[in-house]
Write a protein that binds this DNA or RNA. Structure first.
Lengths: 173, 173
DNA sequence: ATCTCTGCAAATTATTTGCAATGAT
DNA sequence: ATCATTGCAAATAATTTGCAGAGAT
């Protein structure tokens, strides 16, 4: 673990205690890995990591179960990349942020915008909702891919290949 | 179909032609149903609707395949409700909008905010991305559910039951 | 006539679950 | 000692796919 280690791990222990859950070697390994890496990870990747490195074995089922615990506790967050793909990232208590995902290479960047947050709350409130959370994910093409695509053809062609919505655009047959 | 029928259906036909796809009775049924209903629907629900009503039979596989075509064409949009649940809604060429989903009952409301859209674009641009789309989904508790929950207990208790992140909140053991 | 679609059933993929043994408090 | 957790393998659930026959242009 790289940042804030003992503090955050103690919180995890406290959390478990408070919820009458137990600290096990498996949970510790998963927790530590989640905070050690600085990438987004899927269930499968976490499972692979732990299998490669040595330490108490961790089954896939346990990874699923533990990530769920971590998510409930607010230690990690799930991000849905595109339909079907779920990746996680740890939360360090640092300010919340949202993501921009590159449609081409999958690269994920983060950003944070208080104005957007405020406007979201305003809109929920206007509809009578108590807002409890949000998911904001921008899709786009990252600087690197934009450059590459421009070498090969027009951006529009490429967007088309990516399966963009083009049915509503033209009136002509 | 209720709104703008012939026009939108002709667009669909054009789209198919342009992509060398064929108009089949199955595709027509699915398309028309998608624009007839004013609800969000899942693959399964669409399948059930078509099975109940009469007309040319449509298999589940075809529903999957056709909804994908419709999505690519921009005729419908997929919304991911919560992890795993995907529902669709038709697009009428009307302004884009986002959603607020009730955590308790699943009710979905829509809103639209140009300021948010502009800020999104700004953030993507700042990171060097060409923005191609976005997904914004607020979670919350709808007016009805808020009322019900207040009858039974504190909102906080209930949020806790819903599995809110509570691990990072308190420092104390 | 040609090339796409459809339905079916099998295959895949992702995730969940029952249960007996193990381990944490 | 008690009660939660683990691993396994079986069970689910959701979606995809191969293929032969049917259908659209």
């Amino acid at each position: 673990m790289t940042i804030d280690d003992p503090a955050i791990e103690r919180r995890f222990e406290n959390y478990l205690k408070r919820e009458s859950l137990k600290m096990t070697p498996q949970r510790r390994r998963i927790f530590e890995k989640a905070f050690e890496v600085h990438e987004h990870f899927s269930v499968e990747r976490m499972y692979e990591w732990l299998k490669e490195e040595d330490g108490p074995a961790v089954s896939r089922a346990t990874v699923y179960r533990t990530l769920e615990v971590l998510e409930r506790g607010g230690f990690i967050e799930a991000i849905e990349t595109r339909r079907g793909e779920v990746v996680y990232e740890h939360v360090l208590g640092h300010a919340h942020h949202d993501h921009v995902v590159c449609e081409v290479c999958g690269r994920i960047e983060e950003f944070q915008d208080d104005e957007i947050e405020a406007l979201q709350r305003k809109n929920a409130y206007r509809l009578g909702f108590v807002m409890t959370g949000h998911l904001l994910r921008l899709s786009g093409i990252c600087p690197t891919c934009v450059k590459e695509l421009q070498l090969e053809g027009t951006l529009e062609e490429k967007l088309r290949e990516l399966g963009g919505p083009i049915g509503l655009l033209d009136e002509s047959a």
